[in-house]
Simulated assay, not measured.
Amino acid sequence: MSDTVRQRGLDSQGFIVREGSLARVPPVFRPVVAAARDRLPEVFGARLHSAYLYGSVPRGTARVGRSDLDLLVALREEPTEADRADARALGVALDGEFPQIDGVGTLLYGRERLLSGLERHDLGWFVACLCTPLVGEDLAEHLPRYRPDSLLARETNGDLALLLPRWRTRVADAEDTDEARRPLVRFVSRHLVRTAFTLVMPRWNGWTSELHAMAEAFAAYYPARAEQVRAAAVRGCEPTGDAAVLRSYVDDLGPWLAEEYARVHGVKAPRPS
């Protein structure tokens, strides 16, 4: 296998390699991972099919006191509001108990949806390539292997035009303080950088979850927008609370990216409301 293929997250046949593993979890984060593994079956009982880690912790790049713990939980049936409340309560408990993390984010889905044809190149790909098995049967065994192609690009991030009006509302409704805006800047920055990367992913021919590497991959193909995306990558790691940044995202970079994405890859298949 060539060094370039390895560096770009592909195997020798050009398929995306699953990026994380329990072996890569830094020692300081292992107690919180063990606690999540032990408590998830207690919280969801027989409804739990499987659970996964994703993000910086299983990639081995988490920062003590700065990174959150990201979990995906697959239930045997579609999640209820009670399930979501239970997940929030578990997250609050873990966050309060383990100072090495800064929050817990939990995604909840039903097994049938994760394996559905509609989600094959979105949530299915996410489970198979970006999630590390923690509890239960690995759903990746029922999913295909994935290449960094235009279909994957379209189905992962081809809905930016639908998201922009919601972001504008969140920006308008946010409390007028740096502290209140900072999490929103971080969230939107990361989403825009990832969308910029998947716009060029088929040409770059690889996968990475590292924000600065994503920005550099994009910059090679769109130099006129390179500095905007590089700056967004910085804010995705070290967010400011600047209102002007959010306005530039929803009024300039976001609309341009949505239009270019639709031109290059098309629009994501509609989901039920």
Rank of each mutant, 00 (worst) to 15 (best):
M201A: 15
S189R: 02
R111D: 08
P165F: 02
C129G: 10
A180C: 11
A172I: 05
R203P: 04
C131G: 13
P148E: 08
G158S: 13
L160N: 06
L108P: 06
V171Q: 02
R170L: 10
E119N: 07
A140M: 10
H121M: 07
W204R: 04
L184D: 04
A161T: 06
S189T: 01
T177S: 15
R168Q: 02
D149M: 07
F187G: 02
L114C: 11
D173F: 02
F197Q: 11
C129L: 06
R111C: 07
R145N: 04
E119Q: 14
V171H: 00
H121N: 15
E112P: 01
W167I: 00
T195Q: 00
G124I: 09
L199P: 06
D122G: 03
L152A: 06
L139D: 04
E119V: 00
L164M: 01
R194F: 04
R113P: 02
L115N: 04
L199Y: 14
A140R: 09
Y109K: 08
W204D: 13
H142I: 03
H191V: 05
F197K: 12
R120L: 14
E112N: 05
V171A: 03
L130H: 09
T198S: 14
D159G: 15
A128F: 07
L199E: 07
H142T: 09
R186C: 01
L184P: 02
D159T: 09
L123D: 10
E179S: 14
A153I: 03
R166K: 13
L163K: 03
G136T: 12
F197A: 09
S189V: 02
L108E: 10
T198W: 08
D176A: 15
L130V: 13
D159W: 09
R154S: 10
R168D: 01
L139T: 08
L160V: 01
G136Q: 12
V171Y: 02
R113G: 05
A174R: 08
L164I: 15
D159S: 10
V188W: 01
R203W: 13
A172P: 03
E155I: 09
